[in-house]
Simulated scan of single mutants.
Amino acid sequence: MATLTSLTRDLVSIPSHDDEAAAGKSIRQWLETNTDARVTRDDHGNVIARKGQGDTSLALVGHHDVVPPDGSQVDTDGEYVVEERDGRLYGRGTADMKGCVAAAMLAFRDADPASELVFASFVGEEQGGVGCQAAIEDGFAPDYAVVGEGSTGYSGDGVTDVAVAHKGRRGSTIVAEGAAAHASEPEAGANAIYRATDAVDMVRDLDFPETTVLGHDLRGSVAVTEIDGGSAWNVIPEHCEATVDERTVPGERAPLDRVEAIDGVTWRVDQDLPPMACSDAEFADTVLNAATAAQDGAPEHVVKPHATDAGWLAQAGTDCVIVGAAEPGEAHTADESVSLDVLERCREVYERIAEAWPSH
């Protein structure tokens, strides 16, 4: 029988940055072999399994795609390198987030659920949550979800907390158009860089969006991160663009469209990853109780700065929390790793909440 370490190692060893098919096939086959659940792998590559019955559904959610590996994380045959040392497993996807996918698979297998229990591992999370969005469009709609992204080390070193909210990200572009002219006669043209910088000044003066989720403050941010314009040192620029990174919070957005009041300026949204906020305090407390029972530390409700698939689920009506083994700064690195003890802790949390919720 597979252990959590061996199952994680197996999943991490499967390359899934360009194509998630092999990893999805492996997850589906394991669930079909080791559970009596109803298992599907949809046309998008998402793996979804269901067991138990009831009026309420709880999903254990993860993703099996990863970002491209560092050269040190791939061997000469193109396979992912997985190493175990000092109680940690090293390799691309260990922390983000095949370790917690494996933990959720074992919890799903072993739990005697209080209602319908769903396991879901999505594709395309690293591409903006395209797999999760596709599943929602196809009717995926659990009432509650525990998403296995990182929540360890927020309230204290080594403590696995329960994230009840996270920021979203809206990436957008300010586009300024002008009219070219020779730089010796600037009044003959319309300087697109000046128009863009006027817009940048407006962005700089905007208040950051903020809100409160279950008593916790969540504050967003707005920042201009790139600017590009002009064609030559002696030409008045006719085109200039500025990139804006906005970290959004539930229910609040910065009024970036105000820049369009400037002559020649338009504003374009390029990406909009939604924030997440849990609105069910009882569910959040029940998960916190499960996390407390599974560790010696004292976990807390916390907020995350990063967008996850929980945002898409929350936007569709699912109450979400995040519980996972990854620590801040661990994902996407050349020495990505995960604590095996914390993975075991997460597996226990998932199983406990599956058997405790709904509580009545």
Rank of each mutant, 00 (worst) to 15 (best):
R9M: 11
D10L: 13
D10G: 06
H17R: 00
D18N: 13
E20Y: 00
E20H: 00
I27G: 02
I27N: 04
I27P: 02
W30L: 08
T33K: 13
N34T: 14
A37L: 13
R38I: 09
D42V: 03
H44Q: 11
G45A: 00
V47T: 00
I48C: 12
K51S: 07
G52K: 01
A59F: 09
L60A: 15
H63W: 06
V66P: 00
G71K: 04
S72V: 11
V74E: 03
D75N: 15
Y80V: 06
V81H: 03
V82A: 04
E83V: 10
E84G: 08
L89D: 03
Y90V: 01
R92H: 01
R92Q: 02
G93Y: 02
D96N: 06
K98D: 04
G99H: 01
A104H: 14
M105N: 09
A107Y: 12
P113I: 05
P113Q: 09
A114K: 13
S115V: 08
E116V: 14
L117A: 05
A120K: 09
Q127I: 08
G128M: 09
G129C: 11
G129E: 12
G129V: 08
Q133S: 12
A134M: 03
E137D: 15
G139I: 05
P142Y: 10
E149P: 08
E149H: 05
T152F: 02
Y154E: 13
S155L: 10
G156F: 04
G156D: 15
D161M: 04
V162S: 07
V164M: 05
G168Q: 01
R169C: 09
T173G: 04
V175P: 01
A196S: 14
T197I: 13
D201L: 15
L206M: 15
D207G: 07
F208R: 15
F208V: 12
V213D: 06
G215A: 06
H216F: 05
H216S: 10
E226W: 04
G229C: 08
G230C: 08
S231D: 15
N234F: 05
N234P: 06
I236L: 08
P237Y: 14
H239E: 11
C240V: 07
V244L: 10
V244P: 01
R247Q: 06
R247L: 09
G251A: 09
P255Q: 12
D257V: 11
D257R: 13
E260R: 15
T266A: 14
W267E: 10
R268Y: 07
D272K: 04
P275M: 11
M276R: 01
N289V: 12
A290T: 14
A294L: 12
D296L: 11
A307R: 00
A314T: 14
A325Q: 01
E327P: 03
E336S: 05
V338L: 00
E344R: 00
E348Y: 03
I353D: 14
W357V: 15
